[in-house]
Amino acid sequence: MMKRKIKFNILSLSLLSIIFFGTLLSAVSASTIYQLGLTKSTEEYTVIQYDDAGWKATINPVSNPKVFFQGDANVTDAKSKQTIKGWVDQTYTTYDALLSLYFSLFEYITWNNFKTNLTAAGYDNITINTAYNNTYDAWYGLSAEWWFTDGIYKEKPNNTASPIIIMKNPSDYKLILDNCNALINEILNNTAIDPSFKVLFNSFANKTADDFLWQLVFYGFGVAQPGADYLNKVVSDLACVNTTASGSTLIFERTGVTDYTVEVSYGSKGILSTFVVKNVGDNIIYEITSSNADWIFFTILISFIAVSVAIITYVVVRNRKLKK
């Protein structure tokens, strides 16, 4: 009897410590106004619908969804997936934010090519961070990404270090945009810098809030929870003109061949959930939705527990009957 009690106590203690440990970790990540929704798991994306003629008539006659997503993104039923591997707290300086959030790939390459000229003119990370001394706290997530394919997935991901960036304070996006725009203007007005470089650099001066947000969507922009409040705050702080937030969805009003809208929704994990492109007549030209296999795990787990309980009950009842 005594032995049983001790065994029971040890088991209870182990279970309690597991639960406590899990709760503690959740509490640590829930210490700010906005909470991180990321969980280590996999989201699968499927191209539900793609109207090639509609795309070409609305957005661009010579492009297709591959401009937004890698792989066979222009094939209906093509699938891609993203596995969230982990995240850390990260503090960005203005220089970090400039390179990793503000610049597009082309801008980043241009900056790197002219880095010597910029350093010579006094624009290295130290001087930039001294002049624009704000810091921006973020959750920096890392994910493995399998690009869209209409066949079976490759065993190894196409990208093992795809970022997910979530600013802890949504107002920081506005601060980053203002600081980076001011910095670029300052560089353009600096007479010490090679004018030929300035001509190239001139094309990406004064990024608008809409363009900045649109660019971020494809750079691993993530949302803290509650998602609706967070998105609303980002859009209102940035004072976007052609972008609105509706619940957990960002709605971009854009112009190609004709006007069109792009609706980007974010799920409870804070990453992309659906991506819908609509023409002026509100007809869907392109649609991606996401799903996950959490239900399979819980089905297996519940079945396993149910079978275990059934076996234990059967053994206990049988033993009691035999003893009687």
């Binding site: 970790l25 990540s29 596995t83 591997k85 493995a144």
Partner: peptide
Amino acid sequence: VLIPSNLLADT
């Protein structure tokens, strides 16, 4: 795996 900075394997 509960520890956020302990990265999950790629595959």
